[in-house]
Amino acid sequence: MSKIISVGISEHKVASDPVVLVTYGLGSCVGIALYDPEVRIGGLAHTLLPAPVREVQGAERTAKFTCWAVDLMVEELLKCGCAPERLVAKLAGGATMFEPQYRSAHGGIGERNIAAAREALERSGIPLVAEDTGGDYGRSLEFNTSTGIIMVRALQQPIKQL
Protein backbone atom coordinates (compact mmCIF):
# COMPACT_ATOMS: atom_id res chain seq x y z
CA MET A 1 0.00 0.00 0.00
CA SER A 2 1.57 3.24 -1.13
CA LYS A 3 1.46 6.46 0.80
CA ILE A 4 -1.49 8.71 -0.06
CA ILE A 5 -0.98 12.41 -0.57
CA SER A 6 -4.06 14.60 -0.88
CA VAL A 7 -4.15 17.59 -3.21
CA GLY A 8 -6.67 20.28 -2.26
CA ILE A 9 -8.32 22.96 -4.39
CA SER A 10 -5.71 25.33 -5.83
CA GLU A 11 -2.84 23.11 -4.70
CA HIS A 12 -0.26 21.03 -6.54
CA LYS A 13 1.94 18.24 -5.26
CA VAL A 14 4.94 16.54 -6.81
CA ALA A 15 6.12 13.16 -5.55
CA SER A 16 9.51 11.62 -6.25
CA ASP A 17 8.77 8.44 -4.26
CA PRO A 18 6.06 6.01 -5.34
CA VAL A 19 2.85 7.39 -3.84
CA VAL A 20 -0.82 7.81 -4.68
CA LEU A 21 -1.67 11.42 -5.32
CA VAL A 22 -5.39 11.93 -4.75
CA THR A 23 -7.79 14.77 -5.27
CA TYR A 24 -11.47 14.57 -4.39
CA GLY A 25 -14.57 16.15 -5.81
CA LEU A 26 -13.42 17.89 -8.97
CA GLY A 27 -16.38 19.76 -10.43
CA SER A 28 -15.61 22.56 -12.84
CA CYS A 29 -12.06 22.41 -11.46
CA VAL A 30 -9.43 20.55 -13.47
CA GLY A 31 -7.00 17.90 -12.34
CA ILE A 32 -3.74 18.05 -14.29
CA ALA A 33 -1.33 15.14 -13.92
CA LEU A 34 2.22 15.21 -15.26
CA TYR A 35 4.36 12.10 -15.34
CA ASP A 36 7.80 10.95 -16.36
CA PRO A 37 7.41 7.19 -16.94
CA GLU A 38 11.17 6.62 -17.09
CA VAL A 39 11.92 7.73 -13.51
CA ARG A 40 8.31 7.18 -12.29
CA ILE A 41 7.93 10.64 -10.85
CA GLY A 42 4.71 12.60 -11.17
CA GLY A 43 2.75 15.61 -10.06
CA LEU A 44 -0.92 16.45 -9.68
CA ALA A 45 -2.64 19.84 -9.56
CA HIS A 46 -6.25 20.78 -8.72
CA THR A 47 -6.90 24.11 -10.40
CA LEU A 48 -9.88 26.38 -9.89
CA LEU A 49 -9.68 29.12 -12.52
CA PRO A 50 -8.24 29.42 -16.04
CA ALA A 51 -6.14 32.57 -15.53
CA PRO A 52 -6.10 35.70 -13.38
CA VAL A 53 -8.47 38.39 -14.64
CA ARG A 54 -5.73 40.98 -14.28
CA GLU A 55 -2.11 40.71 -13.24
CA VAL A 56 -1.90 41.39 -9.53
CA GLN A 57 1.42 42.93 -8.54
CA GLY A 58 3.53 40.59 -6.43
CA ALA A 59 0.88 37.90 -6.40
CA GLU A 60 2.22 34.49 -5.59
CA ARG A 61 1.89 32.02 -8.45
CA THR A 62 -0.18 29.09 -7.25
CA ALA A 63 -1.97 26.19 -8.85
CA LYS A 64 -5.24 28.05 -8.28
CA PHE A 65 -4.82 29.18 -11.87
CA THR A 66 -4.66 26.55 -14.57
CA CYS A 67 -2.25 28.68 -16.62
CA TRP A 68 0.38 28.47 -13.85
CA ALA A 69 -0.13 24.95 -12.55
CA VAL A 70 1.75 23.26 -15.41
CA ASP A 71 4.79 25.55 -15.10
CA LEU A 72 4.93 25.13 -11.34
CA MET A 73 4.86 21.36 -11.56
CA VAL A 74 7.37 21.22 -14.44
CA GLU A 75 9.86 23.30 -12.42
CA GLU A 76 9.60 20.91 -9.48
CA LEU A 77 9.60 17.77 -11.60
CA LEU A 78 12.82 18.83 -13.33
CA LYS A 79 14.43 19.40 -9.93
CA CYS A 80 13.44 15.83 -9.00
CA GLY A 81 15.27 14.49 -12.03
CA CYS A 82 12.57 14.32 -14.69
CA ALA A 83 13.47 15.11 -18.30
CA PRO A 84 11.18 17.65 -20.00
CA GLU A 85 11.00 15.60 -23.22
CA ARG A 86 9.76 12.53 -21.35
CA LEU A 87 6.88 14.26 -19.55
CA VAL A 88 3.33 13.29 -20.49
CA ALA A 89 0.07 14.80 -19.26
CA LYS A 90 -3.39 13.57 -18.35
CA LEU A 91 -6.43 15.73 -17.66
CA ALA A 92 -9.68 15.16 -15.79
CA GLY A 93 -12.54 17.32 -14.60
CA GLY A 94 -13.84 20.52 -16.12
CA ALA A 95 -17.45 19.46 -15.73
CA THR A 96 -20.51 21.66 -15.99
CA MET A 97 -22.22 21.05 -12.67
CA PHE A 98 -25.15 23.41 -13.16
CA GLU A 99 -27.44 24.01 -16.10
CA PRO A 100 -26.71 26.81 -18.59
CA GLN A 101 -29.06 29.50 -17.20
CA TYR A 102 -26.72 29.94 -14.29
CA ARG A 103 -23.55 29.05 -16.10
CA SER A 104 -23.82 32.01 -18.46
CA ALA A 105 -22.37 34.29 -15.78
CA HIS A 106 -19.07 32.43 -16.10
CA GLY A 107 -19.34 31.28 -19.71
CA GLY A 108 -18.75 27.60 -18.94
CA ILE A 109 -15.93 27.73 -16.41
CA GLY A 110 -15.23 24.00 -16.78
CA GLU A 111 -14.69 24.32 -20.51
CA ARG A 112 -12.51 27.37 -20.04
CA ASN A 113 -10.40 25.50 -17.49
CA ILE A 114 -9.88 22.62 -19.91
CA ALA A 115 -8.95 25.02 -22.71
CA ALA A 116 -6.46 26.79 -20.43
CA ALA A 117 -4.91 23.45 -19.44
CA ARG A 118 -4.48 22.38 -23.07
CA GLU A 119 -2.92 25.71 -23.90
CA ALA A 120 -0.49 25.50 -20.99
CA LEU A 121 0.53 21.96 -22.00
CA GLU A 122 1.02 22.97 -25.60
CA ARG A 123 3.14 25.93 -24.55
CA SER A 124 5.34 23.59 -22.51
CA GLY A 125 5.44 21.00 -25.30
CA ILE A 126 3.98 18.25 -23.10
CA PRO A 127 1.81 15.73 -24.96
CA LEU A 128 -1.68 15.08 -23.60
CA VAL A 129 -1.98 11.29 -23.59
CA ALA A 130 -5.35 10.73 -21.88
CA GLU A 131 -8.29 12.69 -20.55
CA ASP A 132 -11.71 12.36 -18.99
CA THR A 133 -13.25 15.81 -19.11
CA GLY A 134 -16.58 17.59 -19.44
CA GLY A 135 -19.93 16.06 -18.55
CA ASP A 136 -22.13 17.17 -15.68
CA TYR A 137 -20.72 15.18 -12.79
CA GLY A 138 -17.93 15.43 -10.24
CA ARG A 139 -14.81 13.26 -10.26
CA SER A 140 -12.22 12.00 -7.80
CA LEU A 141 -8.74 11.06 -8.97
CA GLU A 142 -6.16 8.59 -7.68
CA PHE A 143 -2.86 8.93 -9.46
CA ASN A 144 -0.45 6.11 -8.71
CA THR A 145 3.03 7.41 -9.46
CA SER A 146 4.59 3.94 -9.55
CA THR A 147 2.45 2.97 -12.56
CA GLY A 148 1.36 6.34 -13.96
CA ILE A 149 -2.23 5.14 -13.97
CA ILE A 150 -5.04 7.42 -12.81
CA MET A 151 -8.29 5.96 -11.50
CA VAL A 152 -11.24 8.28 -12.05
CA ARG A 153 -14.26 7.73 -9.82
CA ALA A 154 -17.62 9.43 -10.24
CA LEU A 155 -21.14 9.01 -8.95
CA GLN A 156 -23.28 6.84 -11.25
CA GLN A 157 -20.34 6.20 -13.56
CA PRO A 158 -18.09 3.17 -13.97
CA ILE A 159 -14.53 3.63 -12.69
CA LYS A 160 -12.26 4.78 -15.51
CA GLN A 161 -8.55 4.27 -15.93
CA LEU A 162 -6.43 6.91 -17.58
Binding site: G25, S28, K64, M97, G138
Partner: peptide, 20 residues
Protein backbone atom coordinates in the same frame (compact mmCIF):
# COMPACT_ATOMS: atom_id res chain seq x y z
CA UNK B 1 -30.07 25.56 -9.85
CA UNK B 2 -29.36 22.17 -8.38
CA UNK B 3 -26.68 19.54 -8.44
CA UNK B 4 -26.61 16.15 -6.76
CA UNK B 5 -23.02 15.00 -6.49
CA UNK B 6 -19.88 14.98 -4.37
CA UNK B 7 -19.82 18.11 -2.24
CA UNK B 8 -16.38 19.14 -3.52
CA UNK B 9 -17.67 19.18 -7.08
CA UNK B 10 -20.88 20.96 -6.09
CA UNK B 11 -19.20 23.79 -4.23
CA UNK B 12 -16.17 24.56 -6.36
CA UNK B 13 -18.51 26.69 -8.42
CA UNK B 14 -19.12 29.03 -5.47
CA UNK B 15 -15.40 29.54 -5.08
CA UNK B 16 -14.79 30.74 -8.62
CA UNK B 17 -15.70 34.37 -8.04
CA UNK B 18 -13.93 34.43 -4.69
CA UNK B 19 -10.87 32.78 -6.19
CA UNK B 20 -10.54 35.56 -8.73
Amino acid sequence: VLSFDMVGAVIDYALIELGE
